[in-house]
């Protein structure tokens, strides 16, 4: 076929066979697209900053036993063994609800199943899903009120240390307010702008806001953000979630938890990265 004839080739979609010169170009186009696909898939994978090794054991229900503490935020203190002197060792596991909710409403439902007195006077066994990263562990009460598997009244209160917050001093932190459930495993990434809406939804639902601040060692410190008297200020911090911020307040320690008490009206400052 001459070049002139090839030039006159005309494609009609409903005719079974396309002219040779046209099908040849179409095939060549498909090959180019195939190469483009390989390049795009590869370059995007290379260009991404990577993902942390946080874990959400989705679909895997675990059992944890310990004592529930309701302050500074609901958590389960779990005995993990004994030190060389025979003193008990503990792990503080933050409790959170199913979905984008804090644990309080679930714990209230659980409390209503108990015979008498408050939930924090029992040693309980709970079913739920573990979330963990960077030394912090959370436990999602996946089954709601059915998360309570077993309970018994605490008789030897001395086995369970007090969790009263101790004031350390004043502190200024720079970093980002996140929701711990997503940050420590449920989402990747669980921080910054792409995750802002989800974090706002989680914190609105009662999951305690956490401040993630880089320390001088280049690792991260985590603080539960609370009001000046230790009250929840979830609603007040929503506007700052996932933005770079500077917090000024009092640093406290309660068991394994670091806390920052602040006045949300004056102690949170939005900063530029």
């Amino acid at each position: 076929m001459s070049k002139e004839e090839e030039k006159d080739d005309f494609y009609v979609g409903y005719i079974d066979k396309a002219p040779k010169s046209i099908s040849k170009l179409s095939r060549r186009f498909v090959w180019h697209i195939t190469i483009l696909i390989v390049l795009v898939a590869g370059l995007i994978a290379i260009g991404q900053r990577g993902f942390v090794n946080s874990t959400f054991e989705f679909g895997n229900v675990s059992e944890l036993s310990g004592k529930i503490y309701l302050t500074p935020q609901p958590f389960l203190k779990v005995k993990t063994g004994k030190d060389i002197f025979g003193n008990p060792l503990y792990k503080d596991v933050l409790l959170i609800g199913y979905g984008k909710y804090g644990a309080m409403s679930t714990l209230e439902e659980i409390e209503s199943q108990l015979n008498e007195s408050e939930i924090d006077t029992y040693e309980v066994t709970l079913a739920g899903t573990l979330v963990y990263y960077d030394g912090v562990t959370l436990f999602e009460l996946t089954k709601g009120a059915k998360s309570l598997l077993d309970y018994k009244k605490i008789t030897r209160t001395s086995e369970w240390p007090s969790n009263k917050p101790n004031r350390i001093g004043n502190i200024t932190l720079e970093g980002q307010i996140v929701d711990p459930k997503c940050y420590f495993g449920v989402m990747k990434p669980g921080h910054s702008k792409p995750h802002r809406s989800c974090a706002i939804r989680c914190i609105s639902g009662g999951i305690p806001p956490f401040m993630v601040a880089k320390n001088e060692n280049g690792t991260f410190d985590y603080y539960i953000v609370l009001g000046e008297s230790g009250e929840a200020i979830n609603k007040e911090v929503l506007d700052y979630v996932a933005d770079p911020v500077k917090l000024t307040g009092s640093k406290l320690k309660a068991g394994e938890w670091s806390l920052i008490y602040l006045n949300p009206k004056i102690d949170i400052e939005r900063i530029k990265e």
């Binding site: 898939a41 995007i44 994978a45 990577g50 993902f51 959400f56 989402m187 990747k188």
Partner: peptide
């Protein structure tokens, strides 16, 4: 075929380069 090829390559490259990526992030991205 090209869409499946892209998805397979995307998942393959990411699992190779970012083993800690979550299935949700893979699906969304």
């Amino acid at each position: 075929l090209l869409a499946i090829l892209y998805l397979v390559l995307f998942v393959g490259f990411n699992v190779l380069l970012h083993p800690t990526i979550s299935p949700e992030a893979l699906l969304v991205r």
